[in-house]
Amino acid sequence: MLEIKNLHVKLEEEDKQILKGVNLSLEAGKVHAIMGPNGSGKSTLSYVLSGKDGYEVTDGEVHLLGEDVLDMEPEERAAAGLFLAFQYPVEIPGVGNMTFLRTAVNAQRKQRGEEELSAGDFLKVVREKAKTLKIDADMLKRPVNVGFSGGEKKRNEILQMAMLEPKMCILDETDSGLDVDAMKLVSEGVNALRDAGRTFLVITHYQRLLDHIKPDVVHIMADGKIIKSGGPELALEVENNGYADILAEVA
């Protein structure tokens, strides 16, 4: 699904190398998790993959289903099946949540040469998916993320994911700012989307989220590199002992 080879990235504005040779191979239908201390480059990886400005790729390649991603605009990556659930979803006053969702869905369909969804069809689908995430009609009508609580914002991210049906989903610290109930709801939303043709990359600080979204593979990232990979037990090890042991082990 997603192949990352020797990815080196520096900040555009200053001479600071953030990613120093990331290698990851994410197969279809799997859930991979990335854990790591603050400043290890986890969020940078998610931004570079989705095409945010301000980063310069100095070396390496990224392919999504065989296509070179790094040459694409963010909207092209989205249409190709990439989705990033933001750590801090952005508020957009004056643009209704529903309008935003429909614009996004139809923009992707158009880029893929598919027919746009009619207002009626769209409404039917969105209502059904919103219901399972406990997003009410009022939240759909309100401006995008404006006045939403932390939990509502994250649920709204998952609703977008459910509507856009991406192939490669990146979740950037989706658990941050969530209480136990909200985490459960969000996780259920993610689990409902697990599918043989869909891959997840879950970035998190805590093992807690991985109790709900069970990963197939866990990677530890430190100082811009993946330093260790393993099964779900690796997340438990981090939870119990912190990163110090692992860092010492590879040093």
């Binding site: 095409g51 963010p74 909207e75 990556r77 996004a104 923009a107 880029q111 401006p143």
Partner: peptide, 22 residues
């Protein structure tokens, strides 16, 4: 906000328009 909209597949021009309306 522009990146957020584009990351959802909204082309740059249309995303800018939405932000103007916003």
């Amino acid at each position: 906000a522009l990146f957020y909209l584009r990351s959802r597949g909204v082309p740059k021009g249309r995303a800018e328009d939405l932000l103007v309306l916003s």
